[in-house]
Amino acid sequence: MIRTENLTRRYDRVLALEGLTFEVHEGELLALLGPNGAGKTTTLRLLLGLISPTSGRVWIAGELMTPESHRLRRQIGYLPETPGFWERLPAWKNLEIYARLYGVPAARARAMALLEQFGLADRARDPVATFSKGMRQRLALARALIHDPPILLLDEPTAGLDPEAALEVRELLRSLKGQGRTILLSTHDLEEAERLGDRVAILRTRLLALDTPDRLRAQRFGTMVAIEVDGEPEPYLSRIRGQPGVIQAAIRNGRLEVQVADLRTVTPDLVRSLVEMGAPILSVTPVKASLEELYLRIIREGRGSAES
């Protein structure tokens, strides 16, 4: 549904994005992660044809996107980093104008229906200037959906929202994903990316990683299991290291952390060996590196390779 090929963008001497090639499949939610200035917003603007690439190409629904592809923009709903409304106009008028720009029939009815759907119907006639940040974000989502687009490009939709408002927006995103829309979600919120994203892309001028969080974990950290024993774990460490299927083992936080080739086949043998050694096992837990750990490792690796 979305495809880029070797997308590069420079702003004068500053390289904002380099050689980005990726694809977002129909009905998929891809979370775009990266530090500030990583090129996330630039990527979204390139996908929309708001700016042109220094080199590379973008295809939306199989068609080449350029700054002149005005008709192709009907396929996309966009929520920019700062929602940006006509502050003096009422909420319904903001949406109605957008509906007309997209050629939506019965524009006013569509605007009112969306305001109802997003819980803003009672404030429909109020100027947007009087809206809270959470309400603005909901209104911005309603605006992105005004023409019922199959593709959504969302730039940090929960940034700066209080936890309750952020949760509301996440619920909305979940339901949009459930409707089969293709979504590219730029976010700093790793938990949000993990909960909502089918895959995550980690960007730092270049694309550093792109896959499901679990596969990225397995690639970077392997599969880990933590074993807690009653007493000192030290005596068991050297013997565990020699077990078949154990890649490495260490003691962290007073427990054994073992990286294994395969959790299902190696863990039972490992536990059996420990019991045979007389280890008083208290618990055996698979360890899942947090997305934060994964993200930081990938970003550091990326920084290291860029510096080298």
């Binding site: 708001l50 009907r74 911005a140």
Partner: peptide
């Protein structure tokens, strides 16, 4: 008002 970016993202020429 940051209202230009979403406007330019529409099909308007």
């Amino acid at each position: 008002e940051k209202a230009l970016e979403p406007l330019l993202a529409t099909p308007v020429t």
